[in-house]
Amino acid sequence: MNSPLESATLFQIGPVAITQAIVTTWVIMVVLVVGAYLLTRKLSLHPSKRQVALELLVDSLDTQIRETTGAQPAPYRGFIGTLFMFILVANWSSLIPGVEPPTAKLETDAALALLVFFSVIWFGVRGSGVGGYLRSFAAPNPVMIPLNMLESVTRVFSMFVRLFGNVMSGVFVIGIVASLAGLLVPIPLMALDLLTGLVQAYIFAVLAMVFIAAAVEEGAHAPAAPDPETLSKKKDS
């Protein structure tokens, strides 16, 4: 059995080593995009059961975003929803024999966490401007600036480590049990892995949403820079 921390390179494109996780990611991307295209081809005012199910999925996501952030879900729907669906499908891809989920690799989880990190910055700046976003690090007072900057990195790091640890451990345990006990014994663990995959996808998406919402909200309510005229009056008095 190979180490779960090692990635097997399938082929090389220039300096880029194409691993199995990357190929699986491409397959998942194709499945998701083609499936989404096929599912959304004939949307009408008189919905079929398929359309109702799709609308229920989107409406549930919108409700979740609205309840988490209190904002309109449209700007965040694509990012958060795609994160959730990709992580969920990637986690559940471990059920296919011979397929190792991409989220069980450090690079994939780190890439997703990196996207969350930059999306927090992007939505924060878009919501309250560069100044407002930078001032959000000074909340509740400037003393907290180093800690807030450190937190913005560590919380994303914890996200990716959490996802990686859970998915990788599940795959690792199932591999060990399958190699020791036989074909049917890992089935309960695989069922548990289904639940773990769903929960981890949900946690990752919700945390990303919370981080983005916090950046937007703190930027909007961050203390404004003191007025120079007011400062001069204070000095005079």
């Binding site: 880029v16 080593a17 990611t25 995009v33 295209y37 694509g78 929803g81 795609t82 991409p102 890439a111």
Partner: peptide, 29 residues
């Protein structure tokens, strides 16, 4: 390199799904 490629893959997936899934369904809603 894998990190960058996976990040690029995620961005592309986000863009594609936004166009072929999230927007059409939300527009239908």
């Amino acid at each position: 390199w894998g990190l960058g490629l996976q990040a690029l893959n995620a961005v592309i997936l986000i863009w594609l799904l936004s166009r072929v899934f999230w927007r059409p369904v939300s527009a239908a809603i």
